[in-house]
Structure formats: structure tokens, C-alpha cells
């Protein structure tokens, strides 16, 4: 068992999860609440990592963070071949799942309840925190868990942009690949088992959160009756 890889994976996943939650929720809100031109293109672009080959994602990340990129030259962000690069790769692949799930959950909150809150004197910010978010929380949580599980399992792009440095940038999935290459099968067995258990637990949790039971009862299309 490669413990440094295990702990690094947890660290990468934890940081990525927080970013996925915040950024994903922002995107979901944007897509549910704001009307803007070419929205469908933005939606599609967010979903793209679900279907692109990992090498393509890795290549884009190399472009984004490499020498000559705005992030590198202007903002002095130099994360390639560090563990932060693994976080970046994890965020990109985990985000679509978060956006999808939390977007559905937010859209599922009955606008009637938000309207009722408005007539009761609540500001939009208060409505979001007291009504919308609590009613959508299961879907949002499920999305975050799915995104985190996907982040934990990220392999291809991570391999390309972290350089696979044992003890520094080598995450668990990459370590498994290494172990198999070196024919250390006992090592690989254990790590595969750990990965499977973690992924299984994550999916199970997400599935249990998935069907939101709150907020659906009074659902009716807004302004259905004139």
C-alpha cells in the first residue's frame, strides 16, 4: 500500500471538492436564474469534460497553465507538476456532475414558495439562504459527492500534468498504474480495493440523497392559472 499516494489523493480530493461545490453552485445558479445569449453553448462547454478523452483535458490544462499562458505570464500561477495541478484536473472533471445535479435541484424548487417569501418581505438573498438552498440541499450535496468521487478517481489528465512524482504528485490512481507497470501486484490489489470501496461509498451516499423529498409536494407550474 502506497500511503503517501493515499493521503495525497485525499488531500487533492478535499481541496477539489470545496472548489467544485462553490464554483459548481455558482454555475448552476447562473444557468437556472440568469437568461443570457448563447447559454446553451456555455452549458455544453461545462459538460464537455464528461465525454472528452483525458488526454485532451490534460492537453488543455497544459496550455492553460504552461509557459506563455495568461495564467502563467500575467498571474504568475505556476502549478504544473505540483499537487495543485492534480486539484485543477480533478475540478475540471468533477464540475460537470456537480453542475448537473445541483442545477436540477435548484430548478426543482417551487417558484411559488419563493414568490410567497417575497410577499412576506424577504429579500432575494434571504430567500436563497432560507428557502431555495435548504430545499435544494439534497441535490446539491449529491452533486458534490458525485463530483468528489469523480475527482478522487481522476487519472489521465492528472498523469499528464503532474509528472507522476512519487511522494509529491503521485495520486492513488496513478500509483496503481505504476504498481502494475512494476508488477507489484500485491500493492495494486490493496489500492484497487481501497479505491473501489471509496467510490462505492460515495455513489451509495449520492444515490440516497438523490430523490429530493422536500420541496416537491407543492410543486406546480408558476402562473399556471391566470
Amino acid at each position: 500500500m502506497n500511503w503517501p499516494a493515499f493521503w495525497l489523493s485525499l488531500q487533492v480530493t478535499a481541496v477539489a471538492s470545496v472548489i467544485i461545490l462553490v464554483v459548481g453552485l455558482a454555475f448552476a445558479l447562473l444557468l437556472v436564474r440568469v437568461r443570457f445569449p448563447l447559454k446553451i453553448l456555455v452549458e455544453t462547454a461545462i459538460m464537455l469534460p464528461l465525454v472528452l478523452p483525458p488526454s485532451v483535458i490534460g492537453y488543455y490544462l497544459l496550455l492553460a497553465f504552461g509557459r506563455g499562458s495568461p495564467l502563467f505570464e500575467w498571474f504568475n500561477i505556476r502549478i504544473l507538476f505540483t499537487w495543485q495541478a492534480a486539484v485543477a484536473a480533478s475540478v475540471v472533471v468533477g464540475l460537470p456532475l456537480m453542475v448537473q445535479s445541483s442545477r436540477a435541484a435548484l430548478a426543482n424548487v417551487d417558484p411559488l414558495l419563493e414568490n410567497a417569501a417575497r410577499t412576506l418581505g424577504a429579500s432575494e438573498v434571504r430567500i436563497f439562504w432560507r428557502i431555495t438552498l435548504p430545499l435544494a440541499q439534497r441535490g446539491i450535496l449529491a452533486g458534490m459527492i458525485l463530483g468528489s468521487a469523480r475527482a478522487l478517481g481522476e487519472f489521465g489528465a492528472t498523469l499528464m500534468i503532474t509528472g507522476n512524482i512519487p511522494g509529491r504528485t503521485q495520486t492513488l490512481p496513478v500509483a496503481i498504474y505504476d504498481a502494475v507497470q512494476a508488477q507489484r501486484y500485491a500493492d495494486a490489489h490493496l489500492m484497487v480495493l481501497v479505491m473501489t470501496v471509496l467510490a462505492f461509498a460515495g455513489l451509495l451516499l449520492a444515490r440516497q440523497l438523490e430523490p429530493p423529498t422536500l420541496g416537491k409536494r407543492t410543486r406546480q407550474p408558476a402562473e399556471a392559472s391566470i
Binding site: 417551487d110 411559488l112 414558495l113 414568490n115 410567497a116 417569501a117 417575497r118 410577499t119 412576506l120 418581505g121 424577504a122 429579500s123 432560507r130 428557502i131 435548504p134 430545499l135 422536500l214 420541496g215 409536494r217 407543492t218 406546480q220 392559472s225
Partner: peptide, 20 residues
Amino acid sequence: LPARKRRIGYVFQQYALFPH
């Protein structure tokens, strides 16, 4: 004037109680 500042009581057909 936004709805929240009008102080008008509105009772909906579907009750619209906050379920949580």
C-alpha cells in the same frame, strides 16, 4: 415597488407553506 416592500398578504391556492 418590489413585492417585499408592499406588505400585501397573499394566500395561494396551493398553500405555499415552506415544507422544511
